[in-house]
Nucleic acid binder design. Structure first.
Lengths: 175, 175
DNA sequence: CCTCTCAGTTCGGTGAGTGAACCGACACTA
DNA sequence: TAGTGTCGGTTCACTCACCGAACTGAGAGG
């Protein structure tokens, strides 16, 4: 939500959630984190987001306990950004919103499909596995596959390429 | 999401959804529509949203087929804004986001609870009815009740007052 | 050294959000 | 028939978030 920050008048929990997650780009960053994107440069090239905005969003998400920084090398110091438990719970928001957008505003075939990794069945629009009957398939058990709708001029950044090449389990590192 | 408009680079359906629903205030307007708010003035006083922004969001939502205008009197001409089918489907996004905000950022007891109207059971965080086992309780079958956490200085606008006074079925007119 | 990469920060310009004032149609009252 | 109030906006000046391009700084590699 291209947004300012506060909704002070609103004492509703939705307003508080939107103060964090409703800013422009934020949910796309979180979605990429589900896809296994973990590094500044990967978010940057995949999202075409201004560098300053990305730095700000990552900091905000870390401060909110949605992402955590993890130092993966000391010299030069480099961090990656991983979803916390709190962040992982946003799957139940992101997935239905994705499916909603796909149903109503898609231009063709879906670009990605999501399956229950343990049984291979495609998830229903609410994120359940129709075969197992499992109610909330946790994102760690979801496999994302490239869908039938590949655009004419696909993006060439490393994240897009990796996502097109092979099925991939959510939350696992992509690159 | 205080946001600009486009995420052109992103061919993902999430980005397209966010172009509509990700702007600042938009999801709060839609939530109020679920609560049964239907008129410009009611949205205005309940949300404390700038008049111009509200007018813009209502137009955008109507153009996107999420709300529909309904002329309820001719002189002077007055419209109300009702959720379409497409808009109603956003319940599966709004409800989990509300519960997520409540779990992680609430300051006290919940302000509202949501029950399956036909059996009286409180919905689980995913929007299911634990008693009936009904998977997706449609918003029209959800009853919203004032919760235990009433703020010290409650809002006095008509919508807030009505929501505090009595249980109320979603999508039914509030005032 | 020189160059390259990575992860940011800085900075000037633009556009969305803000809030107060204004507007026009109509109803109600005296 | 003038005066007042309501409702649903529009207009306008201001600010602040976003934008993109340039810059920085630490380290790697040659």
């Amino acid at each position: 939500m291209a947004l300012g920050k506060g909704y002070e008048g609103q004492n509703c929990s939705l307003a508080r959630a939107l103060e964090l997650v409703g800013e422009r780009w934020t949910l796309l960053v979180v979605r990429d984190a589900f896809y296994g994107v973990r590094r500044y440069g990967a978010f940057l090239s995949h999202l075409d987001i201004p560098r300053a905005v990305l730095a700000d969003r990552l900091n905000t998400l870390v401060d909110a306990g949605i992402l955590q920084r993890h130092r993966y090398q000391e010299s030069p110091p480099r961090d990656e950004y991983l979803l916390t438990e709190r962040g992982t719970e946003l799957w139940s928001v992101i997935y239905p919103l994705m499916r909603w957008g796909e149903r109503h505003f898609a231009t063709g075939e879906p670009l990605r499909t999501f399956r229950h990794a343990t049984c291979g069945t495609e998830l229903d629009p609410a994120g359940r596995c129709p075969a197992c009957g499992q109610a909330d398939v946790p994102p760690g058990d979801v496999e994302s596959r490239p869908g039938p709708g590949i655009p004419a001029q696909p993006r060439q950044d490393p994240v897009s390429v990796a996502l097109r090449q092979r099925p991939h389990r959510l939350l696992q590192p992509l690159l």
